[in-house]
Design a protein around this nucleic acid. Structure first.
Lengths: 152, 152
DNA sequence: TCTATATAGATGCAGTTGCATTAACATCGA
DNA sequence: TCGATGTTAATGCAACTGCATCTATATAGA
């Protein structure tokens, strides 16, 4: 594909909207969680992945793949989650370096309470503004922007 | 409008895509700036607004309105920009509390060099992936999500 | 088997953000 | 005019992030 050095006006507008709207929405969702005395979105992301993974749990590097968080970030986030009793770290039988992270009952409960607030945010901030067809259209368009090329 | 507490599957998918794609794109654009030895995107946002504002400059609170940055964040960001000689702070005649921020020649030059990299990112990451019509469609859909309701 | 290299995860340190508060000035109403 | 309240911007402190590095273990190759 021919890569242009200068973006089209349409590309600039779309980019600017995307940047602004996503920041607004994240901020709004974070504010609502905070208002309810709940942990930040990052915690939800991890608890969600772990809940999906079930009793088998996930290795930290698998969480990194799924969530886009940096390695040191996951490492410390898991430490905080463990300190709060929301996850537990288990040794891995066939790899002495690693550990398996499993969500606890308390972790599931926290996730559930976060979802009550977070889900409402999604319903209001997105679901309430666009029709199902429009939402599908937006998902499709955004999907085409995924997997940005890696540098060097 | 009837506010649903539970979001539709379409809303959840659209939200998830929006969160993930926007993070990927920001990260990618930041990485490219860093690779070129240039300052982060936040600097560009401020320099861009100041360049648009021209010689008259802008008050910090105007930057806050335009950029979504928090007050303390702008305060410190401007301090860094000033330390680098990219902006200058001028007293305001009719308001002893305030100051006017004006971009310097060096600031304009830095903005220009950042745009060379940032603009290419936008062209490649967004402009190269969707047609002009699709970009307009996406901008329109995103526009409908703006101005999320403020809490309390 | 033994060394070199790769991978998993943790961490010290510097820089940044978020929160709460503060200082300085402006404005409004009695 | 003066005090109460509001607005503008800065800052101390704690938490968090990014970077680089480190430890521990695994794997591959001579």
């Amino acid at each position: 594909m021919t890569e242009k050095a200068t973006p089209s006006p349409e590309a600039i507008t779309a980019w600017a909207r995307l940047m602004r709207v996503s920041r607004e929405l994240v901020e709004n969702a974070e504010d609502r969680l905070k208002e309810s005395g709940l942990p930040p979105l990052a915690w939800y992301d991890v608890l969600h992945e772990l809940a999906e993974a079930g009793e088998g749990g996930l290795r930290p590097f698998q969480l990194i793949e799924r969530t886009l968080f940096a390695q040191y970030n996951i490492s410390r986030l898991l430490a905080r989650l463990e300190a709060d009793g929301l996850v537990e770290k288990l040794p891995v039988a066939d790899d002495g370096r690693g550990q398996t992270i499993r969500i606890t009952a308390k972790g599931r409960e926290t996730r559930r309470r976060m979802w009550a607030v977070y889900g409402r945010s999604i319903a209001e901030l997105v679901g309430g503004k666009l029709s199902a067809d429009e939402l599908k259209m937006m998902s499709a368009l955004l999907g085409r922007l995924r997997d940005a090329p890696v540098l060097d």
